[in-house]
């Protein structure tokens, strides 16, 4: 699903950025290029970042072997 049309960025890229260590919307925007032009996608970016961080936290809680910070 693409939601940043200026930089052509979607949920996949945003999740990858979070998995690579980005923890804030602005970090995700910087590394993916989303939200840097017209800015109209930032709420969509934020939604995916929040959802994905939550999922990562749930997975980490279920499996203590997985180190969130290192992933």
């Amino acid at each position: 699903m693409i939601f940043c049309h200026c930089a052509v960025v979607g949920d996949r890229e945003v999740k990858q950025a979070v998995d690579a260590g980005a923890r804030t919307v602005s970090q995700v925007c910087r590394s993916t290029g989303a939200g840097q032009e017209c800015g109209s996608c930032v709420f969509a970016v934020r939604r995916v970042v929040c959802e994905h961080l939550e999922q990562v936290a749930v997975m980490a809680a279920a499996d203590p072997e997985v180190d969130v910070a290192a992933s």
């Binding site: 699903m1 693409i2 939601f3 049309h5 979607g10 109209s40 996608c41 709420f43």
Partner: peptide
């Protein structure tokens, strides 16, 4: 005003 346009891949 437009909502976010989400494009299926």
């Amino acid at each position: 005003r437009l909502g976010n346009i989400t494009v299926g891949e």
